[in-house]
Amino acid sequence: MHSYAAFLRGIMPSNPNMRSEKLRGVFEGLGFENVSTLLSSGNVVFQTKDTNVPALEAKIQKALNTELGIPGGTLIRTHTQLQNLVASDPFAGLTHCRETYLTVTFVRETPKTLPTFPADDTNTVKIVRFDPEAAALLSIIDNTNPSTTNFMQVVEKTLGKDITTRTYLTVQKALKKMDA
């Protein structure tokens, strides 16, 4: 069995069709095992014998759209990808908190070359690096600056809409749940 974490785009817990129990039901209905949700924002860990990640993403997204009307995207990462990302300690010495968000933006595919991001004139965002194995942009958002940042729009414009962002804490929790 292979362990995966699915990070779903566009999940709003206030929508009854997007609640954890319904998401778990879709994954279980697809024959996946040890299905578990994490938080209420579209994070699902599961196991399957399947190893074709793009096919899994398409299968899950089709089922979510058909059964629950969820149009967003599904991005899957393997246990190894998340384990290696966390083991690399990308935010060494930093703690995710209200003032400082440590974020991981997963993209569908690793770009051949990392695009240049526009300068952050608010000094609220620092790009740490791009992790090619996990196809993830790692960044730090400083929430102490009263200037609002449009960083997520910049990332979407630069890397495309087929992305989803989680806090580093969520990624660590997903990995821990996969290890359980």
Rank of each mutant, 00 (worst) to 15 (best):
P13I: 12
N15S: 07
N15E: 05
P16N: 02
S20K: 01
K22M: 13
L23E: 03
R24V: 01
V26E: 07
L30I: 01
L30V: 03
L30M: 06
E33F: 01
N34F: 01
V35A: 12
V35F: 09
T37H: 04
L39Q: 11
L39C: 03
L39N: 11
S40R: 05
S41I: 06
S41T: 14
G42D: 06
F46Q: 09
T48G: 04
T51V: 10
N52F: 03
P54N: 11
P54R: 15
E57F: 13
E57C: 13
K59C: 02
K59E: 09
I60Q: 10
K62Y: 12
K62N: 04
E67L: 13
L68H: 10
G69T: 11
P71M: 12
T74Y: 08
I76M: 03
T78P: 10
T80D: 15
L82S: 05
L82T: 07
Q83E: 14
Q83F: 09
N84D: 05
P90D: 07
P90F: 06
F91N: 04
F91A: 01
A92E: 12
L94M: 10
H96L: 05
H96D: 15
C97Y: 00
C97G: 14
E99A: 08
Y101Q: 12
V104C: 15
T105G: 02
V107Y: 08
V107T: 05
T110M: 09
P111A: 14
K112P: 08
L114D: 15
L114C: 13
A119T: 14
A119S: 14
A119Y: 02
D121V: 04
T122D: 15
T122H: 10
R129Y: 08
F130V: 11
D131Y: 07
P132A: 13
A134P: 10
A135R: 13
A136P: 09
L138S: 01
S139A: 15
S139E: 08
I140Q: 14
I140Y: 03
I140R: 14
I141M: 11
N143C: 10
N143V: 00
P146D: 14
S147M: 12
S147G: 02
